[in-house]
Structure formats: C-alpha cells, structure tokens
Amino acid sequence: MQSALGLHSSTNLVFGSRKGVPCVVRAHVGAERVSIDVQNVNLCFQKDSNVLPILKDCCMSIPEGKLWMLLGPNGCGKSTLLKALAGLLKPTSGKLYVAGPKSFVFQNPDHQVVMPTAEADVAFGLGNLDLTVEEVRCRVMKSLEAVGLLELSQRPVQTLSGGQKQRVAIAGALAECSKVLLLDELTTFLDESDQMGVVEAVRRVVSGSDGVTALWVTHRLEELDYADGASYMENGHVVLGGSVAKVKKFVLEKQEEYKRSISF
C-alpha cells in the first residue's frame, strides 16, 4: 500500500491531496518546525453505497522534538489517524505531512512482531537500510537494552508475555532511529511498572536525541505527565490541542460531567 501511495518509511512522508491530486507539503508553524502536520483531513470508508466518515476535518500540528499524546474515547478515530499518518490509509481529502524516517508500533504486538526470535525481529526493520552487520547488531542490542529485554534477545517470540512482545515491537521502532515515532496504545498489554518503564524509555529517546518526535495514542491520563503536549479527539475530529495542563483539565471536566450524568 505504501508503495502505491509513493511513500517510504525511510523518506519524508509528504502527502497531500486536494481533489485527489497529490501535492508536496512542507510544514512550518511560525518559526517552529513541525514534524507532523494534519490539515483538514477527512477519511471515509466505503462499503457498497454506504459511506462511513471516520475522520472529519482533522487538524493537528506537532512541533519537532516533542512527545505528544493523543487522547479520546474508543472509536473516535485515533488509530485511524495514526494509520493515515503511517501511510497505511489514504485520506479522502486534506493534507498530511510527517517528517521521515518514521516508525509505527501497533496496539497488538502479535501484529507487529514478524520474526521468530526477539533480536531477529528488531533487526527486520533495518533490512532496507544499507548497514553493516556490526552496525545492525549494535542498534539491535542498544534498542533491546533500552526496553530492558537484552537478556531475552534470543528467546522465541511465542514464549514472551504480551508486555515483553510489546517491548520487542518498541525496540524494533527504536532500532530504526526514526525521526517520528507513531505509537498506538503501547501500554495496553503492560503492567503498571512496565507502562511507566516504556513511557520513560520513549521520553528518553525524545529528549536525548536530536529532533525525534513521538505521537502517542493513549487512554491513560497518568501518562500525560511525561508529554510535552496533547490533543483530544472526539467523533472523528480533534477538538482540543495544546499544553498538557489544558488537555488534562478538559478531560477531567468531561469525566466529572459524565459522572454527574450517570448519578441520580
């Protein structure tokens, strides 16, 4: 699909379609350079004559070098937006820009991990890069160390727990040394300590490297503390974006409103 769209994970994703015509978009907001820019994106699924709109006029800009969280209720279109950013889905209209190279981590690690052992899977994403075996080995070991799985590097994937498989998937993304990380509910399968371990690992990657941006889809408010900014989606469009405090306040207010609506 990616090649059909003219996209490649190791190059800048530049996608825009106005009336179905792809165009090159370079994103800047003021003086600040952005890594992800979404402008008036609409995405519909069509089955027979029924058209189901998933994304409705979505707008979002994420500055370079930030860990950005994307929140929202189930079915609001977060994962769809992330897949569109990864190039897996083609928007019906609007503009998308993602700096490259980029990596995507799926919600379910069984969909992401494709090789039989942990280290082979981490190395799989490096297959299209022109690297020496030593460099690949170094990247794989560093990535596995970052997620705390170095001692399990040769374990068959099916013997790992859900959380460990998720960490292998994250290590695969880290090994690609991408400029943009698209992370879809990474902590779903993790226990409490692992959740924080993974958030901290991503935080370290974003803070420690030059210009790495992460867009993190989550439902957990406590993970917001690690973010530089956040956006909130509802019913297919981004209703709020900005500082963590602003989005957190908004979400808490919505929770209170919901509690009041169900109490007698």
Partner: peptide, 21 residues
C-alpha cells in the same frame, strides 16, 4: 502484512535484507 510494509518491506525479499545475527 501491514506491519511489514510499515517496517520498510516493499515486496521484494531479495531487496529486503534479513539479518541473522
């Protein structure tokens, strides 16, 4: 298949190097 595409596999096994470590 989607994950493989996202991870850079473009359908040519000869072009995508698999590292055996």
């Amino acid at each position: 298949a989607q994950a493989m595409v996202v991870r850079g596999f473009q359908g040519d096994a000869a072009a995508h190097k698999v590292y055996y470590m």
